[in-house]
Write a protein that binds this DNA or RNA. Structure first.
Lengths: 113, 113
DNA sequence: CCGTTATTTGGCGACTTCGCCAAATAATAG
DNA sequence: CTATTATTTGGCGAAGTCGCCAAATAACGG
């Protein structure tokens, strides 16, 4: 039997690129904040804009990034557009991210001393 | 009682930036591939380089990004450096990412038709 | 010490992301 | 139709990311 070492080509590559697309959408503080906030229920763009404290066009673009990645859904009602999480399991990420951060802090302190 | 709407400032902002740091480290196809591979056990830089199919300096930099984010640990043994996952719960991410991707594909098809 | 192998670091051009402003679009009231 | 409010889109400069090459560093055998 020949070596079965998996390589980052073809289907595997496409798969990793797809995953990276989702991660990229989550790789921004404002977008993480929005996801966190949406975990408590739907919010309109103007509410999120006030909370994030950036230009409304900036927030709108962040939301469109999350939407294109498949993380949120939008729902236009009258003049307003409400966003909500499409895949709530996204929230499970944060527990692990916190674990990474706690480990990091502990070790950073150790390593610096 | 005044409004308690949370804003993206101060401590909350710092917290989201810290989280985003971890997500950014995972937001690249080669790095996701590496994490996936390390879930099967430790690997040296040269093994990963062969699998990823990029310049060894590129792979080394990817590993240093993962290390600085607190996701992997390195262990130098002789001439080689072996990397391994520090926080295996990272793997839980992928299940949810797949869920996002499946939803996306389904809806993309629907929306295009 | 010298050569070899494994890895990291510096640096550069190509490309992407970010946030604001201004302008376009959409829904609704009057 | 006009004005108003909510949101999206286009565009631009600033900043960050990426991958390669070349050079530096590290471990080890002889």
């Amino acid at each position: 039997m020949m070596s079965v070492k998996r390589k980052l080509t073809g289907q595997t590559k496409a798969h990793m690129e797809a995953r990276a697309g989702v991660m990229k959408a989550l790789a921004h503080p404002s977008r993480l904040f929005i996801v966190d906030e949406l975990s408590h229920g739907e919010r309109c763009v103007c509410e999120l804009t006030e909370m994030v404290g950036a230009d409304i066009s900036t927030v709108s673009k962040h939301l469109s990034v999350l939407k294109r990645a498949g993380i949120v859904l939008d729902d236009k009602r009258g003049v307003q557009v409400f966003y909500r999480l499409r895949v709530p399991c996204i929230l499970n990420f944060f527990g692990c991210v916190e674990a990474v951060l706690e480990e990091s802090n502990r070790c950073d302190v150790e390593e610096v001393s």
